[in-house]
Amino acid sequence: MTAMLEIKDLHAQVEGKEILKGIDLTVKAGEVHAIMGPNGSGKSTLASVLAGNPAFTVTGGSVTFNGKDLLSLSPEDRSHEGLFLSFQYPVEIPGVSMVNFMRAAVNEKRKYFHQEPLSASDFLKLMREKRAIVELDNKLASRSVNEGFSGGEKKRNEIFQMAMLEPRLSILDETDSGLDIDALRTVAGGVNKLKTDNNATIVITHYQRLLDYIKPDLVHVLYKGRIVKTGGPELALVLEEKGYDWIKQEFDGTKGE
């Protein structure tokens, strides 16, 4: 089976500071990868670079997504091609209603594939269906994007958008942060419902907790801009128990930073 995502020796910097120092990662359809690592290791940067955040500059390496050169695509085309980023901090957009926002998103994707826009009734039906997956309140759907949403509501809204857009590869950036246990279960449940043999998920997380709900096939440890360790689900348990110090020690030859 060919790889869905193939990252080779990816280097990226922000404001002249190199954050990613040679990432290699291959993700195949049907797989769930977890990327763990201490704060500041480059986890969120990797997610941002893959999504096309203009704040980051790619200085080397390549990323192939479904056979296409991902790095040459605009953020919106990456989305159309099936990449989805669930933000660690979803952005509030006052004055733009969820409905208008989602309608624009869904219809632009359809336009990209030369399809007619959805009719108003089909669109609302789709909204209803997908809302149910993460138990997102109808009231939230009629408000401005993320405005005044609680932390849990924002994360649920991310997974709702993921359900609407049906991506091939979802990157969940610290989706567990700021969630209580019930919200975590709902959000993880939503992700699991959307999982098929044809799509893949990259779960970026600091803690093992989320991985109790979203079972990874592979766990990678990112440290100082490189993947320094890869293993099965058991690696996450070791990290939970022993923390990251032993990784740092192994990698740096010293204890801590």
Binding site: A51, G52, N53, P54, S74, P75, E76, R78, S79, H80, F84, L85, F87, P90, V91, E92, I93, P94, G95, V96, N100, F101, A104, A105, E108, K109, Y112, S144, Q161, L165
Partner: peptide, 26 residues
């Protein structure tokens, strides 16, 4: 808002459309 622009783009909304939505909202 640059962050809002990027957020919308990651949802497949073009730069032009995202600007339009933000200006309209304003």
């Amino acid at each position: 808002d640059e962050e809002a622009m990027f957020y919308m783009q990651t949802r497949g909304i073009s730069c032009h459309e995202a600007r339009t939505l933000l200006m309209q909202a304003f």
